[in-house]
Design a protein around this nucleic acid. Sequence first.
DNA 1: ATAGTAGCCTAA
DNA 2: TAAGTTAGGCTACTAT
Length: 982
Amino acid sequence: MFGVTKEGHSVCAHVHGFEPYFYASVPENFGEADCAAFRRRLNEEVSAARKNAPGVHVVDVSLERKQSLMHYSDVKDRLFAKITMGLPNMVSAARGILEKGFSVPGVRDGAFTTYPTFESNIVYALRFMVDCAVVGGNWIEFPVNSYTVRAKKASHCQIEVDIMYDKLISHPAEGEYSKLAPFRILSVDIECAGRKGHFPDAQLDPVIQIATLVTEQGSDKPIIRAVWTLDTCAPIVGADVLSFKDERELLRNWGNFLRGCDPDLLIGYNIVNFDFPYLLERAEKLGVADFPYWGRLIGTKVRMRDTVFSSKAYGTHESKEISCEGRVQFDMLRAIQRDYKLSSYSLNAVSAHFLGEQKEDVHYSAISELQNGTPETRRRLAVYCLKDAYLPQRLLDKLMYMYNYIEMARVTGVPLNYLLTRGQSIKVMSQLLRKARQRNMLIPHHVKQGGGNVQAEGGVAYEGATVLDAKAGYYEMPIATLDFASLYPSIMMAHNLCYSTLVPKDKVGKLNPDDYGTSPSGDTFVKASKVKGILPEILEELLGARKRAKADLKKATDPLQKAVLDGRQLALKVSANSVYGFTGAMVGQLPCLEISSSTTAYGRTMIDHTKKMVEEKYRTVNGYTGNAEVIYGDTDSVMIKFNTPDLAESMKLGEEAAVYVSETFLKPIKLEFEKVYWPYLLISKKRYAGLLWTNTENYDKMDTKGIETVRRDNCLLVRQVIETVLEKILKQRDVQGAVKYVQSTIADLLMNRLDFSQLVITKGFTKEADSYGVKMAHIELAQRMRQRDPATAPVVGDRIAYVIIKAAKNAKAYEKSEDPIFALDNNLPIDTKHYLDHYLTKPLLRIFEPILHNAQSVLLHGEHTRRIAQPTPTAKAGGIMQFAKIRLSCIGCRAPISDEKMSKSLCKNCLNDESQHLRKALASVNNLEGDFNRLWTQCQRCQGSLHQDVLCTSRDCPIFYRRKKVQKDLTEATAQLRRFDW
DNA sequence: ATAGTAGCCTAA
DNA sequence: TAAGTTAGGCTACTAT
């Protein structure tokens, strides 16, 4: 075990005596005497499976009485063999043999027998943690006299001890023990010098800089700010600069620093996929033999291998797994990808989003130039590199990542690094194992069904929630919303749904009807009065703990304590909600569709029941102002129009209805009055917007669900237009203003007055390119980019940004997609009409149609839809414009100039007003120069220096696109100006 | 032209 | 080996 004391000393503890083991179910007549024969036979089989590896693999077989977690049974204990193995990695071999079956002399007359196994798929570290009540990120005490200090150290840690596993004391995260340890956090960023036009390749291109920031958890100032540079570098205030002539020396020196610093956490942005692999590959290439020792164990090299993580919720991500004993690699990119849904995950975009701060984005091709310049240009690069090491630390602090992730580890019991490298299910499994252990229960190893698909092709395994039909429309009366609090957890608790309470179909008859309940999906579970389920118990504890955390949070004054508690309540909520998903995960550790389908089935009856009760009670015949109508509802909510224009009355009725309906449900199921929407625009199922009121004084905010404004796959233009239109309609109640705004925006779009940043669409690259069945705009673009530059082309898991450019008339959208930077550099014209017809029209009509009866004609026909002429490329030719011939046209009236002897600038008619046209051209250049200078300065400010060239080419920055556009316009205007004779 | 559906992303 | 769930709107592609 590795850790840190509260004084900040790193600790390595060699924990001894804990052996890997698992269980197998054995016949009741299996005797003590059979254990020896069983052990011998199993050992033979394991040896054979391990290519006749000699030795004792199966250390011990003993008998214990336990209960299976699966199914309710009146038999309270059954016979299990506890099988102890010599090495952790032997468990899976033994499991395979037992599940396939073998024969043991004396057991069932030596007949071939299969043995179901239990807890045989638990990794050794987690097994240890569960048994010793150790959770990720908690405090462990080594009592006096229980350990010995090592004289000859095997690690780089400051303190190194030996201890027996049963001597250590694990403290629950309460009181003093809820504090976070003063972890040492090392943030890193590297720069490499790629060859011209190529992305850096570790086989060829040197590492030229490594910026490193060391911070102690809880402190807001770094202890160390340093940059290792290849070649000289001018000094940087507040940072140590270590310059090296030789790249090998640079690497060696940084490696020594890493070991000496001995950090607990390694952070950075995309470190696991770029910086770390690059450093390791580079050192290998250069033969720096003493470099790859990053872990805390002396003499243990880091090992690197490719891994793929793939889940429906998190998507597919390829990455490198780097073993580094005793240090957690916490890649901020991974964390943010998991926790936030953003259009772009570049460090720049993420910093802008969370820190409100842009960073300059220096293209990899510009880096070599800086490196090959002077000490000053290398200093420039070093400052940039330091910033990239600093930002991940800032993000870690800003997003309270240490608090949130440590609390998640503590609540669910998994080690910290699981939270970024593993899925949701291991967290539920960890809790299940701990709870089962308390109850003397064993978790069966779920044997995956081989052969055909368990689940219908493209279909689903079981029925989910009800979404009530949406009575679409614009509601000017208040709409009250009732929600079930933690619906699925509360259903599982109320009906005692669990593996251990599920009654097999053929056993139901034996039970007293008072002791069980049958769910609407036809599955039977015993009631809590008979035996309480483990899942309900876990959920109760999670939700109870969350209530306490929230109460403590209210009382807390210390900001650090608040952060811990807020992290905890969040972790508890997320954990409670993922229990249901775990039972329904067909490709998970222990799926139980009886539980998940019963949960959703109860939910379906409940929302129907709620709708019925509300609509039956709240009627004029019962003395209410109006007849209530449920206009919509999804899973756990109902939206009610009480048919009163009065906000206060709606709220009162909402509260009353919540209590009235809640009474008809079992505890702890509770329907709550949450909020009122007023006004409310219901577009369809899962799509609505409204002003949200929780008091009668002021609305809280505009709430938008499912509409384009909250979808990442729309361009900024669409999101902004829809957002503004909704605000004008709902907040300002100014439909005419909304119409005017739409008309002027459409005009701007068609007149090409919008910059690229508003037109960039992003979509996820979700699976390998060749497994796409249909051609898609973003995937086709990714392929084209791969041809241009394989090193920087998007890969699976990335989000791909593109714009739609003009192409031949009937070109498919996937032929018109283009990388915004490429389009900008090559002057490719945007297909503005495509944006209007395909992205803007329908969303606008969906919003306006319930409000404006002639929406179509008002919004989409008329003066503002006239476009400026733009050249359309004739050949497809990858969308690149083919200029046939440039003809001069009059600057004043655009008429072709036939008589070139007259003037290069104006036609005969306009020549009369030459001075006026010249003044106009001059003014235009002046204006554009002013605009350009302002944008340039803004970019300089962002890069932190007003004396240096702007190098930034950030796909995520609107200023960048605007600067580029103005630059282009300026070039054009200057060219026109030159045509005048003056 | 039209119907069916793959793929994306969201609601809950 | 490990990977939370289903419902549903919408766009664009593709076969008919």
